[in-house]
């Protein structure tokens, strides 16, 4: 010790700053309490969903997943009265989400490449926040826009064109006169997940060291060759994680989908026909249920959705972890 401490500064007095130890303890209690509350909410939520669906689970079992009848009618003579199955909804959920990703991933990656690598100063500074602003548009407004603008546009231009060019593939059938349907819902979802994918990928591409980009350019590579070989190549896992993040958003969206999907009750090959998704069906029917079994079946839908989201989330975490491991080696 080169500093001559006085007795008071070197002795370990139990009373430091007034209330210091108490404050630290309180901090720990409050923050850990907040963390535990999250877990408690999640557990209670799952419990509620499982409890709520128990009636439907005991009535239909796993068959719920592959039966397509959804009939809330209570009149005694009707066929399949009060029988529920989620096949149409699961199919619609998967197909709309896939359409959303097929459109949004290439577009989002392209936007991110532009913002992170190509845009200079001011242009990027304007477009970047605008893309993120797109994520702030409430889904109900996007749904309205979908009904008024997007559906007529798709019905008169894109859908006929796809039908004419690729009509021999069953999924591109004749356009629906309303313009509503699975395809329209997928496009609306694409607009919703686009800013998420673009923002995540942009941040990802910004972490690619300038050294590597310079290294590629110094080898006589064009900018595109540099982007493909260095930026995209070293971000593959991250793009995968961003895609799944977008997927989980698309799977769970209810309102906008309800507005534009046309509430169909059968699985049709053509993407241009009406359909429905798990989340959308819950939003449509929960308020006006006519039987306890119908309510329980809606809870069952919620349970299926929860499991799908959980799987997507776990997959994203798995990919990110692998990605970070590789990053760790790179640094």
């Amino acid at each position: 010790m080169s500093i001559q401490g006085t007795a008071s500064s070197t002795s370990l007095s139990p009373t430091g700053r007034a209330g210091g130890r108490f404050g630290d303890r309180l901090l720990t209690v409050l923050t850990s309490g907040a963390a535990l509350a999250t877990i408690a909410v999640l557990v209670l939520l799952v419990e509620q969903v499982v409890n709520g669906s128990s009636l439907s689970i005991s009535a239909f079992g796993l068959g719920f997943l592959w039966h397509s009848t959804w009939n809330p009618t209570l009149s005694a003579g009707a066929v399949n009265a009060n029988v529920y199955g989620a096949a149409v909804l699961i199919y619609g959920t998967v197909v709309t989400s896939v359409i959303a990703l097929v459109i949004a991933v290439p577009l989002g990656v392209a936007i991110a490449v532009y913002l992170a690598v190509l845009a200079h100063g001011r242009v990027g500074a304007v477009i970047g926040p605008l893309v993120e602003l797109l994520a702030a548009v409430p889904s109900v407004i996007l749904g309205l826009w979908g009904i008024i603008v997007l559906a007529p546009f798709l019905r008169t231009t894109i859908e006929p064109a796809l039908h004419a060019a690729l009509g021999w593939i069953p999924i591109f059938g004749a356009p629906n006169p309303t313009g509503l349907g699975v395809f329209t819902a997928g496009v609306v979802l694409a607009i919703m997940v686009l800013p998420i994918i673009a923002a995540v990928c942009r941040d990802l591409f910004l972490t690619v060291p300038q050294d590597l980009k310079d290294g590629a350019l110094a080898l006589g590579m064009t900018r595109w060759e540099m982007i493909r070989g260095v930026v995209l190549d070293s971000s593959r896992a991250g793009i995968g994680a961003a895609t799944i993040l977008g997927l989980s958003r698309a799977l769970g969206e209810a309102i906008a989908v309800t507005q534009v999907i046309g509430t169909g009750s059968t699985i049709t090959a053509s993407l241009f026909q009406n359909g429905d998704t798990l989340a959308s069906r819950i939003a449509e029917q929960f308020i006006g249920t006519v039987s306890r079994l119908q309510t329980a079946s809606l809870f069952y839908c919620a349970l299926v959705l929860l499991v799908m989201e959980l799987i997507a989330n776990l997959a994203a975490q798995l990919i990110t972890r692998r990605f970070q491991k590789r990053r760790g080696l790179a640094l």
Binding site: D211, L212, A218, L219, D233
Partner: peptide, 25 residues
């Protein structure tokens, strides 16, 4: 740049295999 090679301050190999680092360009 195709004719004039450059080596930088900090080694900047690509996060690829040794072979691919050379073979890529």
């Amino acid at each position: 740049r195709r004719r004039i090679g450059m080596v930088f301050q900090r080694p900047n190999p690509f996060p690829k295999s040794i072979y691919e680092n050379i073979a890529w360009a």
